[in-house]
Amino acid sequence: MSFQITVLKVLAGHPEGRASVADLTRYVAVLSCSGADWSERMKRLAARAPGLDIFSSGYVLREDSGWLITDVGRRFLASIETPVMEARLEPVFDASAAPVAVGPHTNVIHLSEHEFTRRRRAAQNATEEQIGETAWRQVP
């Protein structure tokens, strides 16, 4: 089934959704050998479409010049590529469980205080280093 998904992807990427059988074979071979990422992705998509038959479903038409993806085929491909929203066991946001703010904007970081604290720490560290150097020089 992942082969048929790959065919849909290749055709969807071609101008007008059409490719000769030779081009299609070459592109499918390149993608199939491109690594585990592609193979795993196609397997995941194929799992979302068990029993897929791209010809009997009308997703791909065979013509003398090659194969053509139909509008139905494009919609099908888009539908299996769309991530499924899994049901959540808990609500994303429960207003009754939200903490009640005390005072104005309790979640704001005051950058002016932060900068003052950084400067004070830097001055303390510099002073401690100077004291350490002075003490080292005074040792007999």
Results as ranks from 00 to 15, higher is better:
residue 1 M to N: 09
residue 2 S to P: 01
residue 3 F to Q: 12
residue 5 I to N: 00
residue 7 V to Y: 01
residue 8 L to Y: 01
residue 10 V to F: 03
residue 11 L to S: 03
residue 12 A to P: 00
residue 13 G to E: 10
residue 13 G to D: 13
residue 14 H to R: 15
residue 15 P to E: 15
residue 18 R to P: 00
residue 19 A to F: 06
residue 21 V to Q: 09
residue 23 D to M: 12
residue 25 T to G: 09
residue 26 R to N: 07
residue 29 A to L: 08
residue 29 A to V: 02
residue 33 C to D: 12
residue 33 C to E: 06
residue 34 S to F: 05
residue 35 G to W: 02
residue 36 A to D: 14
residue 41 R to Y: 13
residue 41 R to Q: 15
residue 41 R to A: 15
residue 43 K to F: 11
residue 43 K to I: 14
residue 44 R to V: 07
residue 49 A to F: 05
residue 49 A to E: 01
residue 51 G to V: 03
residue 52 L to A: 05
residue 57 S to M: 13
residue 63 E to H: 11
residue 67 W to H: 07
residue 68 L to R: 14
residue 69 I to Y: 08
residue 73 G to V: 01
residue 74 R to L: 13
residue 74 R to D: 02
residue 75 R to A: 09
residue 77 L to S: 04
residue 78 A to W: 05
residue 78 A to V: 04
residue 79 S to M: 06
residue 80 I to W: 11
residue 82 T to W: 03
residue 82 T to H: 07
residue 87 A to G: 03
residue 90 E to Q: 15
residue 91 P to V: 12
residue 91 P to H: 10
residue 92 V to Q: 13
residue 93 F to C: 07
residue 95 A to L: 06
residue 96 S to I: 02
residue 98 A to F: 05
residue 100 V to G: 04
residue 101 A to D: 14
residue 102 V to D: 04
residue 105 H to I: 03
residue 105 H to F: 09
residue 108 V to W: 09
residue 108 V to M: 11
residue 112 S to H: 13
residue 114 H to Y: 06
residue 116 F to D: 13
residue 116 F to S: 10
residue 120 R to H: 04
residue 123 A to V: 05
residue 124 Q to M: 14
residue 126 A to N: 05
residue 127 T to Y: 15
residue 129 E to M: 08
residue 130 Q to W: 14
residue 134 T to D: 04
residue 135 A to T: 04
residue 137 R to D: 11
residue 140 P to S: 05
